[in-house]
């Protein structure tokens, strides 16, 4: 018998608590396996207009993880709602999360309006934590006043769908930022995005990433993300989606014990495209 791993989140049923994290699973298409086994898919972060992203190299290998400085390369919100979401909907019946990036409260609001109107999108995840853009992103997400402004603007436009805010871990008090989001009407929080890091090439003495810094993800950050999930879920009354270094069914269980209602899998999919499937299978064997 197939074990029931389903969960309820914002009134939606997820087949299991595993969600492919934004930026690590493209737009959910082109894989050589059935993605329907995955509880939710968070699409690549999208802005109002298409963006080319940062110069290469924008990825670096690290012990137990990786750095990326993609810098929100994306085709823009119109292509997302008109092409990417319908294409995914042809093959996927699970929960689809649109990840919305931006550089101003107005831009977030514009993208949220379009995403809120899109039939194929179930949840809107506000990315106020991209570490790879020099304005907006984490700059907004690490400032209490700016965070409040962005969430307020988004909340006004997102009327039909749950609004989740993806927090930056690169802050002094992540729980305080979480509480601000909750106060401004967020339905949930994704905790958290990547940690700002860098590598230097020993041969040249120069940073490996063309952007100097990048977001660090992978198994190495799991205890850091777990701590953040614990802090935020104990400080806030809205559901927390854990994210950071999850690579096994055990990690999922641990994050849920820390207070997460669902768990995102990110960097693990970069090493192994089937990581979510493997983790769900592990979970099925573990869950009591």
């Amino acid at each position: 018998m197939v074990k029931d791993l389903s969960i309820q989140l914002f009134g939606l049923t997820l087949r299991n608590p595993v969600i492919a994290a934004s930026g690590t699973f493209g737009f959910g298409t082109g894989f050589d396996f059935d993605v329907n086994a995955i509880g939710g898919i968070a699409l690549k972060g999208t802005t109002a207009e298409a963006r080319p992203g940062n110069p290469c190299p924008r990825v670096a290998d690290c012990t137990a993880g990786m750095l990326n400085s993609v810098g929100l390369e994306n085709p823009g919100i119109e292509v997302l709602v008109r092409e990417k979401v319908p294409a995914l909907r042809e093959i996927y019946s699970g929960v689809v999360i649109a990840n919305i990036g931006g550089f101003s409260a107005e831009e977030y609001a514009f993208c949220c309006t379009r995403a809120d109107e899109s039939e194929g999108i179930d949840i809107i995840e506000l990315n106020i934590s991209c570490p790879n853009v020099h304005a907006g992103g984490a700059v907004l997400g690490s400032d209490a006043v700016a965070t409040a402004g962005v969430v307020r603007a988004a909340r006004k436009t997102v009327r039909r769908k749950p609004l989740v805010v993806k927090l930056s871990p690169n802050v002094t008090d992540i729980a305080a930022i979480g509480r601000i989001c909750e106060k401004e009407g967020a339905d949930g929080l994704t905790v958290a995005n990547t940690f700002l890091g860098m590598r230097i090439d020993l041969k040249t003495g120069k940073p490996v990433l063309a952007n100097t810094f990048g977001g660090f993800s992978g198994p190495a950050i799991f205890p850091l993300a777990l701590r953040a999930v614990w802090q935020v879920s104990h400080a806030c009354g809205i559901p927390v989606i854990g994210c950071g270094g999850v690579s096994s069914g055990k990690d999922v269980m641990e994050m849920m014990m820390a207070g997460a209602s669902a768990v995102q899998v990110g960097a693990a999919s970069i090493r192994n495209p089937r990581a979510c499937i493997t983790i769900i299978n592990e979970l099925a064997c573990m869950k009591k």
Binding site: G23, T24, F25, G26, G30, F31, K44, P52, G53, C56, R58, V59, M66, N68, V70, E73, S269, I270, P273
Partner: peptide
């Protein structure tokens, strides 16, 4: 990164 088109690291 992934090598298969879903991480946008090698543009």
């Amino acid at each position: 990164g992934c090598g298969a088109g879903y991480c946008w690291c090698c543009t």
